[in-house]
């Protein structure tokens, strides 16, 4: 048997296993971490034109914990993440199937306004992308468009406490009027986190938030994520297994558009069930 056929066999096996698992989790109101479930995805598929990028993903995401998605490049982690706050709507030719529910409410319900959804599910991107505005205006952007502040004092408070929560306030408090693009990479990423927090989201999605940062900035962000966990449901995509192990409580392993294995982070890293997961963790795939 060739390697390729091997992989395909494994994949099929993984998929069968997945369905069993999802049946199991569906019966439990809370998952292995013993936490209430915030987001549930069932049989989520994504097509980019003719190309299928996700093949039926089903997963539960626990409240006030960090869930990490790992897997080799191109396996569909970002694609799945972008399904959760419907960012795929902005991509021409992207078609999403299956259901995703936030607190039991269907995210793809035509009656649900995507504006409202994205106010509840914030997002932080791979590369820090502050707007070419001042630090203050960057953070104030979300509250302004959503009309969350009744007056300037409210807005000031939102901006300051968001910057605080993002651990950036002390560093920038004297230069709130300066351009956000003038900050260092790590500061920019924290600014983007503050920008997301300022809208008061319940869930925060982070797509490789540290991949453009140096180790020190990465450590700061990881610490921050650990703090935010107390108040927010966080989903993070990462290429670093160490990072997943450090910051997340739950881990899901994706491969070639399939969810191969998911579970408590410790279990996944110490005792993976699936051979592909083993291979990936040992550095043999990807």
């Amino acid at each position: 048997m060739t390697n390729l056929e091997n992989a395909q066999m494994d994949m099929l096996a993984g998929k069968v296993k997945m369905t069993q698992q999802s049946v199991n989790t569906a019966m439990n109101p809370s998952d292995a971490l013993d936490r209430p479930i915030r987001l549930t995805a069932r049989d989520v598929t994504v097509h980019y034109g003719a190309k299928q990028a996700l093949h039926g993903i089903s997963i539960d995401i626990p409240d006030r914990a960090v869930t990490s998605f790992i897997g080799p490049s191109g396996c569909g982690k970002s694609t799945f993440l972008r399904c959760i706050n419907r960012m795929n709507d902005t991509i021409e030719g992207a078609k999403v199937g299956g259901t995703i529910k936030l607190d039991g409410e269907d995210v793809y319900d035509p009656n649900l306004d995507v504006v409202e959804l994205r106010a509840r599910i914030g997002m932080v991107f791979q590369k820090p992308n502050p707007f070419p505005k001042s630090i203050y205006e960057n953070v104030a952007y979300g509250p302004r468009i959503h009309g969350l502040a009744r007056n300037k004092a409210d807005l000031d408070e939102i901006v300051i406490s968001s910057l605080r929560k993002a651990g950036l306030f002390e560093e920038v408090k004297d230069r709130l009027g300066e351009a956000g693009t003038g900050l260092s990479g790590g500061q920019q990423q924290r600014l983007c986190i503050a920008r997301a927090i300022a809208v008061g989201p319940e869930v925060i999605l982070m797509d490789e938030p540290c991949s453009a940062l140096d180790p020190i900035a990465t450590a700061i962000i990881e610490e921050l994520i650990d703090e935010l966990r107390e108040n927010y449901t966080i989903v993070i995509v990462t290429h670093s297994m160490q990072q997943a192990a450090r910051v997340s409580q739950k881990t899901a392993f994706f491969h070639l558009g399939n969810l191969i294995e998911e579970g408590v982070t410790e279990d996944i890293f110490t005792n993976p069930v699936n051979k592909q997961t083993q291979d990936y963790i040992m550095g043999r795939i990807g």
Binding site: V115, E116, R120, L148, D154, I158, I197, G200, Y232
Partner: peptide
């Protein structure tokens, strides 16, 4: 608490967002 993370604060914020939706659309 404008950035409160409790269920109640979140609901209040959602109401605020909803109130502006018609105008924004």
């Amino acid at each position: 608490d404008l950035l409160g993370t409790g269920r109640k604060a979140a609901n209040e914020r959602t109401q605020l967002v909803r109130a502006g939706l018609r105008r924004r659309h």
